[in-house]
Structure formats: C-alpha cells, structure tokens
C-alpha cells in the first residue's frame, strides 16, 4: 500500500495511505506534484502542512478515515439550490465526533478543512458554528463561546448604535 507522510506545523508526522490522503483535494495535488518532480516512482512523499498543528491534523485524518468510503462530493455540490449537503451528510458518528469539542477547536477544524479541501468536514463544522451564532442573543453567544463582555465605558452602547444604523438603513 502506497503511503504518504503528512507533517503538522509542530512537527508531528502521520503516516497514512495515499488513497486516504487523496480524499483531501490539497493533499491529492501535493502528492501528484511530488510524483511529477521525483525521479523515483517508489519514493514516499512527505508533505508539510505549516498552518495546521498536530491536534487538529489528527482530527481531520480521523474524520477522513471514518468517511473513506463516502462518495467524494464535488466542491460545487448543491451550490445551485443553496442548501449545501451538511444535513444529508451528517451522521450520528459526526455528531458524536463534534460533540465534545470546544468551539475554538471546531473553528480551527474549519480552517484546516478549508485549507486541505475536505468539503464534507468543512460543511459540518461550519454548520455547527453557524448554529451557535445565527438567531442567538449576545448573551447566548457569550455563553456558547465561554466569553465575558470586556467592553469599557460607552463602547458597548456605541457598538449598538453603529449596528442599529446598519439594520435600519
């Protein structure tokens, strides 16, 4: 089985099958570029991802592993009707996978899925963060993201006035 070494920003190396890695658009391109530039067709490609740390890369690979037999969705799937495929693609496994995560980690996963071009993962992580913001009050968002208000003086009031101008005009 052909393998590829994927290295995180903090230097952790993951050895995965090329078949699995190629389910990421970005890794697929990198493997092909390596092929073209290497004389030895047997050589094992090594890909360094400078923007993703080990903890996050491990989660992406774990998700890919679970979904390795899913059909690959074209990047523009369901673009026309605007619904996206998150609902239809999200399994119980996905829900359990995301449930224990801190929202900060989910946001890092969004960036990683976007960078590595893993559409299915990008969809479900975006949906999760969107659901914590859309239709929520300021206080509900603060609770979901474990944040406290740190506005000083009349900053909060001023921000509200700026927002109101945008809403009413």
């Amino acid at each position: 089985m052909a393998l590829v070494r994927v290295i995180s920003s903090d230097g952790a190396a993951f050895l995965v099958s090329q078949r699995l890695a190629k389910r990421s658009g970005k890794l697929k391109t990198e493997i092909e570029t390596f092929r073209k530039s290497s004389d030895n067709s047997e050589a094992q490609p090594e890909i360094r991802i400078v923007t993703i740390r080990a903890e996050i890369l491990r989660l992406v690979l774990q998700w890919l592993q679970q979904h390795q037999n899913d059909p690959v969705l074209p990047a523009n799937q369901n673009e026309q009707d605007g619904r996206g495929d998150a609902e239809m693609g999200q399994s119980q496994w996905d829900r359990d996978f995301l449930a224990p995560m801190d929202l900060g980690i989910v946001m890092e996963l969004i960036l990683a899925a976007n960078h590595l071009e893993v559409k299915g993962l990008l969809d479900i992580t975006c949906k999760l963060v969107e659901s914590k913001i859309t239709g929520r009050t300021v206080d509900e968002i603060r609770t979901a993201f474990k944040l406290k208000s740190d506005f000083k003086g009349n900053e909060e009031e001023q921000t509200r006035l700026e927002n109101r101008w945008c809403v009413e005009n």
Partner: peptide, 25 residues
Amino acid sequence: LLELVLPLLNLNKHAILTCREVSRG
C-alpha cells in the same frame, strides 16, 4: 479565529452584527 473563519460561514446581516456586541475581540 473568527476573523479567519467568518468569511467561510453562512451568516446573515443580523448574526454578523450581533457578533460585534459580544466582546472587544
């Protein structure tokens, strides 16, 4: 991180503006 993630999210005008009132960051 929201600064990087925000453009990827499907948020409406109200949701985007509400985020501004959450904290200075």
